[in-house]
Simulated scan of single mutants.
Amino acid sequence: MSTQQKPGQPGSGNATPIPGDDPARQMVVADPESSSVTHISLAGGTYTMLVTGKQTNGAYCLIDMHVPADGGPPLHRHNFEEMFTIVEGSVDFFFRDTTTTVSAGSTINIPANAPHHFRNKSGKAVRMLCVCAPAGQDEYFMRCGDPVDSRTAPPPQLSKDDIAQRQQRAKDLAPLYATELLPPDGN
């Protein structure tokens, strides 16, 4: 058994009974253009909460990210896995001390606890799907950002004070969501 697998997990080599169906849980159909999803302006982009932790019993969340030119979050790390599939465009991922340009059709996984961020240096908007497991990043984004009307909506016009207020809110909430915002040099 792999050191990452726990008894009863798929591939663990241990047969365990599968729990019964939970009829309280429903199938989720996620349409990024639907009025039932939440769109959040954050870190220079718009993040659409396609599948939330509430819908997956906390197992994971799925976020549709629209990242305009020069958009992306600051250097950070968190105690959960994060995977991105590039749907349109290309984006630079900074992982520890390495930069990798990832293009449409590719998927990149960021291991838990590793310093990273991404920046769209392509000159045009990028679209990515982001899975965080377990969930929680969806709630963090909704508490830090500003609601907008659609997946490609421009960010609200914020004053310097508004921006500073949102940055402080992100710093204050980060520990509650297993996240650490790092200085630009990573130290």
Rank of each mutant, 00 (worst) to 15 (best):
59 A>Y: 08
129 L>M: 14
171 K>D: 09
168 Q>D: 14
73 P>E: 05
125 A>R: 09
134 P>Y: 04
106 S>F: 11
167 Q>T: 11
36 S>C: 06
137 Q>I: 01
94 F>H: 14
141 F>K: 00
71 G>E: 07
69 A>Q: 05
101 T>K: 15
128 M>P: 00
67 V>P: 07
118 F>V: 03
78 H>I: 05
100 T>F: 13
53 G>S: 05
83 M>V: 11
152 T>W: 01
36 S>H: 09
86 I>H: 01
59 A>N: 07
31 D>R: 08
169 R>Y: 09
84 F>G: 00
86 I>Q: 00
56 T>A: 07
138 D>P: 10
88 E>T: 08
36 S>K: 14
44 G>C: 09
114 A>T: 11
101 T>C: 15
59 A>K: 07
130 C>R: 01
68 P>D: 11
107 T>L: 11
166 R>I: 10
167 Q>C: 14
128 M>S: 08
105 G>A: 11
59 A>G: 06
171 K>I: 13
172 D>G: 04
86 I>R: 00
42 L>P: 02
74 P>C: 09
73 P>D: 05
31 D>I: 13
102 V>K: 07
57 N>D: 10
31 D>T: 12
74 P>A: 14
159 S>V: 03
119 R>C: 08
95 F>I: 15
51 V>Y: 04
142 M>W: 05
35 S>R: 10
77 R>P: 00
35 S>M: 09
172 D>M: 07
42 L>F: 10
41 S>E: 10
32 P>C: 12
31 D>A: 05
32 P>E: 10
152 T>P: 04
83 M>I: 08
36 S>I: 07
68 P>F: 06
147 P>G: 04
66 H>G: 06
140 Y>D: 01
169 R>D: 05
42 L>G: 04
115 P>M: 06
139 E>S: 06
163 I>D: 06
73 P>C: 05
145 G>W: 03
90 S>F: 08
72 G>L: 03
33 E>S: 12
98 T>F: 07
103 S>P: 00
153 A>E: 04
147 P>E: 15
108 I>F: 11
57 N>I: 02
160 K>F: 11
41 S>G: 14
126 V>Y: 01
74 P>I: 01
57 N>G: 13
60 Y>Q: 05
54 K>D: 13
82 E>C: 02
52 T>I: 03
154 P>H: 14
71 G>V: 03
144 C>Y: 04
89 G>T: 07
38 T>A: 12
60 Y>T: 00
54 K>Y: 06
104 A>E: 03
173 L>F: 03
160 K>P: 14
